[in-house]
Design a protein around this nucleic acid. Structure first.
Length: 543
RNA sequence: GCGGCUAUAGUUCAGCGGCAGAACGCCUGACUGUGGCUCAGGAUGUCGUGGGUUCGAUCCCCACUAGCCGCCCCA
C-alpha cells in the first residue's frame, strides 16, 4: 500500500530546523515591537472576491494560482438526486417510455434564483451510454449518484436552461429537461480561497473593525502561511510562510507621509541586520499614482510596438498582455532595448515625484543604502508610488527576500474608506535558506543540549525519577528523563548525546538522597545532595 | 503550465542485463552501576509507482508521481 506523503509543494519542518524558524520569528517580533507594531492574525481563508478585487483579476495569482473551492452544502445534492430518482421510478420505468427524444446523459445544475435555489436534472441527446445511465438511475439511486460523481463525460456537460419549477419541459436543442426542483435546498454557497498573500486580509480586517475610526495610524504585523499553486522550486513552496507588516490609516493620521515609507524601509534594514543577513541590497522605485501607472502603461505599450518584434518571444507576448513585465526580462540581448524604453520616472506626476524625493531624502539621512531601479514594477495591482525589494545573492533565481510598497487605493478598492498604506511581505522560506547557507559557511552552532539527563536504575525507580525530573524542570532546567529498564550503559550513551550532565538515580541515591552526577564535558563524577541538585545542574558545563 | 536533470539502506551516495553495496548513523557484545576512543558481530531495502522489452530488469524503453535547476510569475 502506498504511504501517504506530504502533498506536492508542502513540507514538514522538523527540529532542529524549527529552532531557526523560531529565532527568526522572535527577532522579527522584537523589532516590530520596538517600532510599535502590534500583531494581527487573520483567517487562512477568505471570500474569493477579496483577492480578486485587491490582488487583481488579471494577475497570475488570481487567474491560476489560488486554492479556491465552493463552500456549499454538498450533501444536499445527493438528497435531491435520490428524491428525484424515487419520484421518477414509475415514469421512467422503461427506457423507451422516458425518452421522448431519447434520454441523454443526466446532469445537475443549480443556480441561485431570487434567493432560492433551482436544481435541474436534464438529459442530452441519446446515446447508448446515456440510456445505461438512466436505466441505472431508475433502478438504483446509488448507482446514479456514482455515475454522476465519477463519470466526467456525464458531469462535464453543462447545458442550462431556465426551468419552470416542478414541471418537466423541453429546453435547448442539446438537452431535455427531466425535472426541476425549486426551493431553498442549499443553505449557503460561497466561494472561498486559501489566502495567497496577507495584505488583503489585513486591509479587510481594518475596514471590518473600523480601525480607521480611531484616527490613529494602524501598525500591524503578521506571521503565517500563505498558499499559491505554483510549480515548487527551491525556496518556493505551495504553502509558504510570510512575515509582513502594514502601516495603514486615514490620511489625517499621516498615512500618506513619505516618512512612513522611510520608517518601514529603515525598520527592514534593521531587521535584516539583526537577523544576521549579510549582503542584502535594497532596490527602490516609484510607480506613481494609479493614474501615473496607467499612463506609463500606455506610453510603454506604444513604445513597444516598434521594438517588440526585435525582442524575445516572452517579451513579444508581454508587450501586448502586460507591458510592465517587459521590464523584468532577463534575456541579455533584450537589455539594450529595454534601456531605451521610456522610464516610469518620466511619467510620474509632480505629487508622486515629490513624495518619492522625500522618501529617498529620508533614507539618505538615515544612512539606509539603496539603489534606484526604474524597472522595479511590482506584480500586484494594488501597488502605488513607492515600491521596493530587498534581494540577496545566492538564492538562485528566487533572489527576492522581501518585497512591498505603498497601496494608497487598496482600501477603497474593496469597499472601505480612504486608507493609504504601505507594507511588505518577507518570504520566510527563503530567509531560512539564506541563513542556513551563511551558517554553513560560518559554522553552525551545535544544537543546544539539555541541562541534565535523569537516569533511574531499575524500573522500580521510574516514578521517583519522574518526580525528580519534575522538580528540576520546575526549577527552570531542561531535563530529559531516562527509563529504568535501560541498562546504565545505554543510559549513558543516550544521555551523552542530548544532555550536558547525567543524574543517576539508583537504589543508593534514592535511599541517601545524595545523587550521582557526572559532567560529560569534564568526565568528573560528583555526589550532590538533592537540595543542591538544581543549583548544581544550573552551572555551566565543566564547573 | 513549459523545458532539462534526478529517484538505490535512517542519511549522503556508489553500482551492474544474472546473489543488493560503501560511509556515517542504528542495534548487540567485549563491559550485569559508567558514555566518548577502540575491537568483534548484526539488521539495514517492494532499488519512487505502474506497465513494456527480455530466459532474466534495480539497470534498457514508456507512462505516472515526486525532488532539483531553469522559464513563466512571484516573497
Amino acid at each position: 500500500m502506498a504511504t501517504v506523503k506530504a502533498v506536492r509543494g508542502t513540507r514538514d519542518l522538523l527540529p532542529p530546523e524549527t529552532e531557526l524558524w523560531n529565532r527568526i520569528e522572535a527577532t522579527a517580533r522584537q523589532v516590530f515591537a520596538r517600532y510599535n507594531f502590534g500583531e494581527i492574525r487573520t483567517p487562512i481563508f477568505e471570500d474569493t472576491g477579496l483577492f480578486a478585487r485587491s490582488v487583481g483579476e488579471e494577475t497570475d495569482i488570481v487567474e491560476k494560482e489560488m486554492y479556491t473551492w465552493d463552500d456549499g452544502e454538498r450533501f444536499e445534492k445527493s438528497l435531491l438526486i435520490s428524491r428525484w430518482s424515487l419520484a421518477n421510478r414509475e415514469r421512467f420505468g422503461t427506457v423507451e417510455d422516458n425518452s421522448p427524444s431519447g434520454a441523454g446523459p443526466i446532469d445537475l445544475e443549480c443556480e441561485d434564483l431570487d434567493g432560492n435555489f433551482e436544481l435541474v436534472l436534464f438529459g442530452a441527446k441519446p446515446s447508448k451510454r446515456s440510456v445505461d445511465v438512466l436505466a441505472s438511475a431508475v433502478s438504483d439511486k446509488r448507482a446514479l449518484l456514482t455515475q454522476l460523481q465519477s463519470d466526467k463525460e456525464v458531469t462535464g456537460r453543462h447545458v442550462f436552461a431556465s426551468p419552470v419549477p416542478g414541471v418537466p419541459e423541453e429546453t435547448t436543442p442539446e438537452g431535455v429537461l427531466l425535472e426541476a426542483f425549486h426551493g431553498n435546498f442549499f443553505k449557503s454557497s460561497q466561494s472561498l480561497t486559501l489566502r495567497p498573500e496577507n495584505t488583503a486580509g489585513v486591509v479587510r480586517a481594518y475596514i471590518e473593525h473600523g480601525l480607521g475610526e480611531s484616527g490613529q495610524l494602524q501598525k500591524l504585523y503578521y506571521i503565517g502561511p500563505q498558499f499559491r499553486r505554483e510549480r515548487p522550486q527551491k525556496g518556493r513552496y505551495r504553502q509558504f510562510w510570510q512575515i509582513g507588516a502594514e502601516v495603514i490609516g486615514p490620511p489625517s493620521a499621516g498615512s500618506e507621509s513619505a516618512l512612513r515609507d522611510a520608517e518601514v524601509l529603515e525598520m527592514l534594514a534593521t531587521l535584516l541586520d539583526e537577523l544576521g543577513i549579510g549582503g542584502w541590497a535594497l532596490e527602490l522605485n516609484s510607480v506613481g499614482s494609479a493614474a501615473d501607472r496607467a499612463g506609463y502603461n500606455d506610453v510603454l505599450r506604444a513604445a513597444l510596438v516598434d521594438v517588440a518584434p526585435k525582442m524575445c518571444g516572452d517579451c513579444q507576448r508581454r508587450a501586448v498582455t502586460n507591458p510592465l513585465r517587459v521590464l523584468d526580462c532577463k534575456v541579455p540581448e533584450d537589455q539594450p532595448i529595454i534601456d531605451g524604453l521610456p522610464k516610469i520616472g518620466d511619467s510620474l506626476g509632480d505629487d508622486s515625484k515629490q513624495h518619492f524625493a522625500q522618501v529617498t531624502a529620508a533614507l539618505d539621512a538615515a544612512g539606509v543604502p539603496y539603489t534606484l531601479n526604474q524597472r522595479l514594477v511590482r506584480g500586484l495591482d494594488y501597488y502605488t508610488r513607492t515600491t521596493f525589494e530587498f534581494t540577496h545573492g545566492g538564492l538562485g533565481a528566487q533572489n527576492a527576500l522581501l518585497g512591498g510598497g505603498r497601496y494608497d487605493g487598496l482600501s477603497e478598492a474593496i469597499g472601505g474608506p480612504k486608507a493609504p498604506g504601505i507594507g511588505f511581505a518577507m518570504g520566510l522560506d527563503r530567509l531560512v535558506l539564506t541563513l542556513q547557507a551563511q551558517e554553513a559557511v560560518v559554522g553552525a552552532a551545535p544544537a543546544a543540549k539539555a541541562d541534565a539527563y535523569v537516569a533511574p536504575i531499575g524500573e522500580s525507580l521510574n516514578a521517583a525519577a519522574l518526580i525528580l525530573a519534575r522538580d528540576l524542570r520546575r526549577a527552570g532546567l531542561s531535563v530529559e528523563l531516562g527509563d529504568g529498564s535501560f541498562r546504565l550503559k545505554k543510559s549513558f550513551e543516550a544521555a551523552d548525546k542530548i544532555a550536558r550532565r547525567i543524574v543517576i538515580l539508583g537504589e543508593d541515591e534514592h535511599q541517601s538522597g545524595i545523587l550521582t552526577v557526572k559532567d560529560f564535558t569534564t568526565g568528573t563524577q560528583t555526589k550532590v545532595p538533592r537540595a543542591e541538585l538544581a543549583a548544581h545542574l544550573a552551572r555551566p558545563a565543566g564547573e
